[in-house]
């Protein structure tokens, strides 16, 4: 067990009457790989945004490396080591793929000049985007854009990498490739939080799984335990995901 890297202390976030995080507490340690599953609208992406600094929580504290970061903006948190991808890619459309990653290496990664360019090129190699380096991001398809999101987040040299549904729409070989990339990042000692509907991608990486529904954690443990829990089955897999014994399956949907 590593030292606590990310701590959420009773974090709440509401949009009007919609609660996306209700007094959530969570500790992620150096080297952890945590998966988060949950139905659409459960608050997974909002939770990421509260951690990355895109959204301010209504109450509670976010700590990174033992230090409260509530007052810091997204850019400052990125420079501290919180890297993230967005479910809907936020590519810099009129910049090339290489330039997209170079900004990340320069600012989030804190490098300049040649080392920044070398890191950017290496990350493109690692994520399979090297051949697209000089293409404007606007000309990429959705899957390539998701890859670019991942490449950009890795290039910020994060200590915590948050992935938001990067596996959606990938074929099996592509999922295996992705797992390899994420595990490669993990081996560098980077902690990973991965929100994903594609469970087969998650289980290839994470050793801990949380189910988030209605702004609350309703399961926390090994992937097998959590996926087997009746409560999780009900809210997440309830609509007959090939699970026969779910009591009241589908009631929540």
């Amino acid at each position: 067990m590593g030292a606590p890297l990310l701590e959420l202390d009773r974090v709440s976030k509401r949009f009007g009457s919609v609660v996306v995080a209700e007094s959530l507490s969570l500790t992620v340690r150096t080297g952890d790989a945590l998966g988060i599953v949950g139905p659409n609208g459960a608050g997974k992406s909002s939770l990421f945004s509260v951690i990355s600094g895109d959204l301010a929580p209504n109450s509670g504290e976010v700590r990174f490396d033992g230090r409260p970061v509530n007052a810091l903006g997204a850019a400052a948190r990125c420079r501290l080591g919180i890297g993230r991808t967005y479910q809907v890619p936020r590519s810099f459309e009129h910049m090339t793929v290489f330039e997209n990653v170079l900004v990340a290496a320069g600012r989030g990664g804190g490098l300049a000049g040649r080392p920044a360019a070398e890191l950017a090129a290496a990350v493109l190699e690692q994520t399979g985007l090297r051949v697209e380096a000089n293409r404007p991001a606007a000309r990429l398809g959705l899957l390539q854009r998701k890859r670019l999101e991942l490449a950009r987040a890795i290039a910020t040299r994060p200590r915590l990498l948050m992935l938001d549904e990067v596996a959606a729409g990938l074929t099996d070989p592509e999922v295996r490739q992705l797992i390899e990339v994420v595990n490669g990042v993990r081996r560098e000692g980077v902690a990973v939080i991965w929100v994903e509907h594609v469970v087969r991608a998650l289980v290839g990486v994470v050793d801990r799984l949380i189910c988030l529904a209605g702004g609350r954690f309703i399961g926390d443990g090994s992937p097998a335990e959590v996926l087997a829990s009746p409560e999780v089955k009900e809210v997440f897999l309830g609509t007959g995901y090939g699970v026969g014994d779910t009591p009241g399956g589908g009631a929540g949907r």
Binding site: S52, S91, A104, R107
Partner: peptide
Amino acid sequence: RLGLDLTAIRDDEVGARSVGVG
């Protein structure tokens, strides 16, 4: 370097913040 930041901000401000651009 600031120019690269500005070009990123031009294209997506939230994205620029998320990769550490001030």
